[in-house]
Design a binder for these strands. Structure first.
Length: 360
DNA sequence: AAGGCGTGGAC
DNA sequence: TGTCCAAGCCT
């Protein structure tokens, strides 16, 4: 028994927590059954993403790809399109790759072994524990931000939860206190409590089923926990993007490289703008189109601007339209208005397209 | 170990 | 309005 858990009434805590969960849990689409594949999809979608955002994506994704086999046999283009707008797109490329591996190496059955499931792309310590406990009822910790917030308050733990070492500490703690009989309900109850009651700001302690077990509540410091170091501010970038069309109204788009930001998504040709070049934005964009794509285009004056904020950078996009006069390279793909609907674009470039269509 | 990696919501 | 996020993983 670790020191943090001396005098902690594990059995009572489990009972209070699980009983509350069974009465109060939300009716969510991924709680209709224990299909390991669908639990897996939901867990990947829920990484750093709100429940309300995920629900419609989960329903559409699991309708379009209802089984391991269906997803394994799908084209990446179609899979990315189903993820369009959800963000963190490497999640779905890793999921697709891992599902193919399960289909080929595990007979289409999601492995229930901690070592095997950990080897799958995109399955980290949290997702491993979530799948094993929720789909297979195996008593493995599933430590996410909710669990760290709840348990840091319950046990008055002041370690910085942004550190890897701290997450490992919480895993050790959960291994000690997880219900061996009902690990699925236990893990989900901790997360549900964090989502509904033990929220980051203004937690509803008077409604909390485990407040009698909560050290932070007794000490009145619940709003000071958890301790979490701050992230850096995003770096602003000036950019220009061009919607290029020919005399037939065909559009010319670019597929981003297979690694890095927005990997494998489509975009309108664009470049970063530099102040020190002493050229106008239009001149810089025209030069970029010439050098990168060997394109001559008749660019119109500035149409408008779009700002898009990422976790780590800010795109300030100046938008131009222009008719292509000549193009030598084949780095751009010609699409019509029907074809373009099949391709996944980042939200910033969806806005550019809407601007072109006059919808914004 | 710490930064890259999206997006839309809440305050 | 700006700030901080929300069921993390990868390198």
């Amino acid at each position: 028994m670790m020191k943090k858990l001396e005098n902690f009434a594990i059995q009572d805590f489990q009972n209070d927590l699980i009983n509350w969960y069974r009465n109060e849990k939300r009716d969510l689409p991924w709680r209709k059954n224990q299909d390991p594949y669908k639990i897996w999809v939901s867990e990947v979608m829920l990484q750093q993403t709100r429940v309300d955002t995920v629900i419609p994506y989960f329903n559409e994704f699991t309708t379009k790809f209802p089984t391991i086999q269906a997803l394994a046999n799908a084209d990446e283009e179609e899979v990315l399109k189903a993820w369009e707008g959800l963000g963190y797109y490497s999640r779905v490329r890793n999921l697709h790759s891992a599902v193919k591996e399960v289909n080929e190496c595990y007979g289409g059955i999601v492995p229930n072994d901690p070592n095997e499931i950990s080897k799958l792309k995109g399955v980290g310590p949290y997702t491993k524990g979530a799948i094993l406990s929720i789909a297979y009822n195996i008593p493995e910790p599933a430590v996410d931000g909710n669990v760290m917030r709840v348990m840091s308050r319950i046990l008055s733990i002041w370690d910085d939860i942004a550190k890897v070492k701290t997450r490992n500490l919480f895993e050790e703690i959960i291994r000690e206190i997880i219900s061996q009989e009902y690990p699925s309900d236990f893990n989900q109850a901790l997360m549900e409590l964090g989502a509904i009651i033990c929220t980051p700001t203004s937690p509803s302690c008077l409604l909390c089923p485990v407040r009698e077990h909560c050290a932070a509540f007794h000490e009145g410091v619940q709003t000071e926990l958890p301790v979490k170091s701050k992230k850096k501010k995003p770096v602003p970038l000036q950019m220009a993007a061009a919607v290029l069309y020919d005399e037939n109204g065909q559009l010319y788009i670019h597929k981003r490289p297979p690694t890095g930001l927005l990997a494998n998504l489509w975009e309108f040709p664009n470049c970063e703008l530099k102040q020190e070049l002493n050229k106008t934005h239009t001149e810089q964009l025209a030069l970029f189109l010439k050098e990168e794509y060997d394109i001559e285009a008749a660019l119109q004056p500035l149409i408008g601007t779009i700002q898009h904020i990422f976790s780590h950078r800010i795109w300030n996009l100046s938008i131009y339209f222009g008719e292509i006069k000549s193009m030598e390279s084949e780095k751009l793909v010609q699409v019509d208005e029907e074809t373009i609907k099949q391709y996944a674009f980042p939200v910033s470039h969806q806005k550019i397209y809407k601007m072109y269509k006059g919808e914004i």
